[in-house]
Computed example of a mutant assay.
Amino acid sequence: MNVETILADLVAVPSLPGTPNRVMTDCLRDYLAGAQVTEIPGPEGDRFNLFATIGPRDVPGYVLSGHSDVVPVEGQDWATDPFRLTRDGNRLIGRGTTDMKGFLACVLSMVPEFAAMDLRRPIHVALSYDEEIGCRGVGHMIARLPGLCAPPLGCIVGEPSDMRPVLSHKGKQAIAITIEGQAGHSSNPALGVNALYPAGELLVWIRDRAARLATEGPFDPRFDPPHSTLQAGVIRGGSAVNIIPDRAVIDIEVRSVPGQAPQEVTAEVLAELHAVAARSGVRASSAEFSSYPALPPPEGDDLSRLLARWTGQEPLAAVSYGTEAGLFHAAGIPSIICGPGSIARAHRANEFILDEELEACRRMLLALSAEISAPA
């Protein structure tokens, strides 16, 4: 099947995270003809993962993993319709071409070729939803894998890496902190409880804790920066200057090096939150809205050596962005990142992928299938 045609169909579906994905799922399923396909619903009831197998299910094989959702385009200055694939020379432009429908198109284009081969080991295709808002969908699929296939030998997550195998990434947790005081008229502040002041105390503490992470570690020189990070990214509170604000919400994010779970740092933040709340007479709560574990460096080099051979590129030790690979690894499946396109183009206006990048991905997939095919 033609990769560009498939990519055009995928781009035409505005598969935004947090929305029903039946149209996207049906499109993907159409290109999985010849595979054994299982639809795995999420708890939302209107979103689904797909897990497909080509070859024997009862022996260990390899997982090709990708997410089908894309980030929104609002506020971006696109030269073309972002949900219509547009060719400009060797560039294919559209939302998701790099992150990561280009990889999905390559995989789907190979399904008929995989199905025609006498595979000694299976190739599994794992297609998830809502990755862009915290890897929310894939966990429901990973939980079902023991009943769907033999324990996989490895998982290739096709996030854009310039087709260079990537061995590790940081973990992440993002939470919303809510502080509730008591509203009142600003003419007598003593009759209310201003939620912004304890929020300000907590923000100063977060700033200082982030600085200590930079100076005290733990450190991992493979990353830039080589330590875990903590930051407050959004604060919301107050409605008018003459009303005592009774509510403040702070969104914070931790990105942690392997060996330090992001939850360790957020637990410190929450302990300080409750201390501040007790001193200030406010109520405090928190809710996680994004989380995934780090992908630590592999314990062995079997998968990285295979990917180096299949791509012709030496592995890269680590990247700063996160992926679903950490979740596959946490489930006991050796995982690596390798996909077409550059992460520098992801989430931006006029996102594009190159013809030669798609072809390089197909060559890697063909090398994988040749590796596990029976001799002629």
Rank of each mutant, 00 (worst) to 15 (best):
P334R: 10
G233F: 04
P298H: 04
A248I: 04
H274W: 03
A367M: 14
L108K: 05
G137P: 05
V11D: 05
F223P: 05
I235L: 00
D118A: 12
A261F: 06
R91T: 03
L316C: 12
D46H: 05
P298W: 09
R309W: 11
T5G: 10
T80S: 10
D246Q: 15
Y31G: 07
R363F: 00
P298I: 04
L273N: 02
G134T: 02
D246T: 10
G281D: 13
F219R: 13
S187G: 14
K101F: 02
S168T: 01
A240N: 09
G341W: 08
R255I: 09
V157G: 01
Y129I: 12
R84T: 15
P17F: 04
V71F: 00
G94Y: 12
H227T: 09
P60D: 04
S342Y: 09
L203K: 15
T5A: 14
E351M: 14
E44A: 01
L50E: 00
G34W: 13
S280Q: 11
F352H: 06
V138T: 01
S161N: 10
R305I: 11
R207L: 08
T311N: 08
I337F: 04
T38N: 12
M100N: 05
R247L: 07
T38D: 03
V282F: 06
F289P: 15
G89M: 02
S280E: 15
A35K: 07
S228D: 07
G184F: 11
T97N: 00
I336K: 06
A174Q: 08
D77T: 10
V59Y: 06
E268F: 02
W310A: 06
L270V: 13
A248S: 13
G45P: 06
P375V: 10
V204C: 09
T86D: 00
N350H: 03
V59S: 07
P17D: 04
P189C: 06
S228I: 11
E272R: 06
D81P: 04
E272F: 00
P151G: 07
T178S: 05
H329M: 02
S304A: 12
I337T: 07
R120P: 07
I40W: 05
Y197G: 07
D26S: 03
A271I: 11
Y292G: 11
